[in-house]
Design a binder for these strands. Sequence first.
DNA 1: TAAATTTGTTAGACACAACTAACAATTTTA
DNA 2: TAAAATTGTTAGTTGTGTCTAACAAATTTA
Lengths: 217, 217
Amino acid sequence: MNTLAEENYLKAIFALMDENGEVMVNELSQRLAIKMPTVSSMMKKLANKNLVTYESYKPIRLTEKGRVEAALIIRKHRLTEMYLVEKMGFGWEEVHHIAEQIEHIQSPELFAKMDELLGFPALDPHGSPIPDSSGKMIPREYQKLSHCKTGEKVKITAVVNTSHEFLTFLNGKQIHLGLEMIIHSLEPFDGSMTISYKENKETISSVVTDRILVEQL
Amino acid sequence: MNTLAEENYLKAIFALMDENGEVMVNELSQRLAIKMPTVSSMMKKLANKNLVTYESYKPIRLTEKGRVEAALIIRKHRLTEMYLVEKMGFGWEEVHHIAEQIEHIQSPELFAKMDELLGFPALDPHGSPIPDSSGKMIPREYQKLSHCKTGEKVKITAVVNTSHEFLTFLNGKQIHLGLEMIIHSLEPFDGSMTISYKENKETISSVVTDRILVEQL
DNA sequence: TAAATTTGTTAGACACAACTAACAATTTTA
DNA sequence: TAAAATTGTTAGTTGTGTCTAACAAATTTA
């Protein structure tokens, strides 16, 4: 069994591997807001438990065991988010903070029950895939809105960031999963994008378009 | 904010005060399965935080502040148990272990939502009162089944112990909250009691009758 | 009431997970 | 390629919450 701290490291390494492929001590340190020496020594501990491969000055990688354990924590997180939204009536912007805590609950029964009551969902409220109980996860193969070109018609399939602030911003612009939009123009200077959807026409910055995943229509 | 360890001490002191009025270091040590020196030093810490009153060799008591904080943790525990039984379909014997973890979640919104979805319940699935959001709790004034006399007709209003083993035992004998029963005989030697209810007639030990609370009919 | 038992405290150690300060390796850039 | 910047490690400290061993106070009982 892993400690709370270990679980948080595993999750962060998993997320960073997903984003960048390789994970440096420095990145992990910044992501977790934990100083490098602490991360360094934790890596030795996780390597000892055969959850990561790690040699001094080399990148960190999850082992297969570590990958599965990380995926199972993410499974609990995403099932919880889905449960909170679908069964308890929370908004998608409210659930991250709660799921961040409930993901550490030790009770296979609780999460099996959520899964069952939800009808075994494939995606969480932010469009991210929920790993199955063996830790397998269908990879998202959607592209960032920021990589789309003028004139394209796209549909929002997921959001990359689940913070309260970001999702409240999207709520304010009535942007949600499944929304279809047309890309009107793209400002080369700063990457800001003008989009139209329903009766709206909005210009959004690249900070936003980087965090929205879409599929082509 | 209190740590996980501190919350568990507060809860245990609250429960022991409820049962015995006063709490000794020794009792707390046994209840929590933590050695006396550790309890002793934690009492100094809690006294410093103004959560308990404590002087060496004297009994421990919760301050008003400590009492409220303990009650709010118990509120979260009991709301969770009720939610798990009523909304998720768990048996009353399955929920203690899960609630024991969820009671430490920091999210007033989550528990407010449970409360609302449950229709502001007064009692948990074991018949124990749920403290309100200011920490107030209606005292149970029921008596132990073990204190009842032959010939009395009583109704089960609560169980004192919520362990999986005890409740599974009761399930096996089809004993549940609200059940009405007649006390046929009481064995003076060991306190075992013969009761009848519905089509059943059972003899149960004082270990069991001590853990069942009833009201007279 | 003196001895025995129970209860509680003090002192010191340990594991965990964080930190800072100092130094070392690696990578970038001038 | 040498200097500068970045990244990472080592060594030592801290706070939390646990422990054991030894001693001290309080209570029970003979």
